[in-house]
């Protein structure tokens, strides 16, 4: 007789066929490591000007070169990772919590709640996401000031709809299952059925989507900063750095190129994690 196993929320990871998941975790882990230990890894200051070494090409002293103010690009890239990773995670996590809750309630209860939530989703989806964020930010900037805070609020207001759609569709399927009937027969409350039983079976597609959502949020934040509407220089941020290098493309291509590559590497990491998780679901875990 086997002893009954402890029920796991996340089943044990299997190495075989999961290379993309582990490669993704390694890449994201490396970015986190570099950004958190930035002051110990780099001897340079990310903001202080050093005009004597301005526009230097990549070398042993400056791995990714220096910008027009003589600041070390590698240092700025890893300091920027702190901000960009933070934005990516927060801007994906908060809408995820809102969207999962609203989607689950809408799918489970149906009726007027479902109608209201889905109408809001329909309207939000009809406006191109970037345009919606930009116009929300334009209005919010009058109240909460421009830049990061208005971007966060705009993303919280608009971003949840994608999660609500995904979760609602899953919940509609799950609530027909026998285990839900069993829960009802046992006299469980609605909250317990939704959040402890149905969601546990419905959450995975939302988690997979969240991985690409993190990438899209980082792209969004850096695009806004590139357009001059997000993080302002001299704060190190990948999009803002790329914008600063625009005027020096011919003499110093590395100023613009390197932050873009940093975004690419980070995005690659999260995408690989997402692919790995999706593969696991396909295998029927």
């Amino acid at each position: 007789m086997q002893t009954p196993q402890r029920i796991r929320v996340f089943p044990r990871l299997r190495i075989s066929g999961q290379w993309n998941l582990y490669a993704g975790l390694a890449v994201v882990g490396m970015m986190l490591f570099l950004s958190l230990l930035a002051p110990w890894i780099s001897p340079y200051d990310p903001v202080q000007n050093a005009l004597s070494v301005a526009l230097k090409a990549p070398s042993a002293a400056h791995w990714l070169g220096t910008d027009n103010f003589g600041r070390d690009i590698f240092t700025r890239v890893i300091y920027a990772a702190r901000l960009d990773l933070q934005i990516g995670l927060i801007a994906a996590a908060v809408p995820m919590v809102i969207g999962v809750a609203l989607g689950a309630l809408a799918g489970y209860f149906g009726g007027w709640l479902d109608v209201i939530v889905m109408r809001i989703v329909d309207v939000t989806v009809s406006i191109p996401f970037l345009v919606l964020i930009l116009s929300l930010m334009a209005i919010l900037s009058q109240r909460v000031g421009s830049g990061l805070s208005s971007m966060y609020i705009a993303v919280f207001l608009a971003g949840w709809t994608a999660y609500a759609r995904i979760i609602r569709a899953e919940v509609l399927v799950q609530k027909q299952q026998e285990y839900v009937l069993a829960c009802k027969v046992l006299g469980y409350g609605h909250a317990r059925i939704i959040f402890r039983h149905i969601l546990r079976n419905a959450i995975t597609p939302a988690i997979v989507f969240a991985m690409s959502d993190i990438v899209m949020c980082i792209l969004l934040a850096s695009s806004l900063s590139f357009l001059g509407l997000g993080v302002k220089p001299p704060t190190p941020e990948w999009g803002a750095m790329a914008a600063e290098g625009r005027n020096f493309m011919l003499q110093a291509w590395w100023i613009t190129t390197m932050p873009g590559l940093a975004i690419g590497v980070t995005g690659l990491g999260f995408s690989l994690i997402g692919d790995g998780l999706a593969d696991r679901i396909d295998q029927g875990d």
């Binding site: 790329a242 493309m249 011919l250 190129t257 873009g260 995005g267 690659l268």
Partner: peptide, 22 residues
């Protein structure tokens, strides 16, 4: 295609500009 998805479009735009126009 993974590369196309994760690279910011302003960056792709600037790189193309640098190569083909400049």
């Amino acid at each position: 295609s993974l590369g196309g998805f994760v690279m910011p479009s302003y960056w792709v735009a600037l790189m193309l500009m640098l190569l083909f126009s400049i």
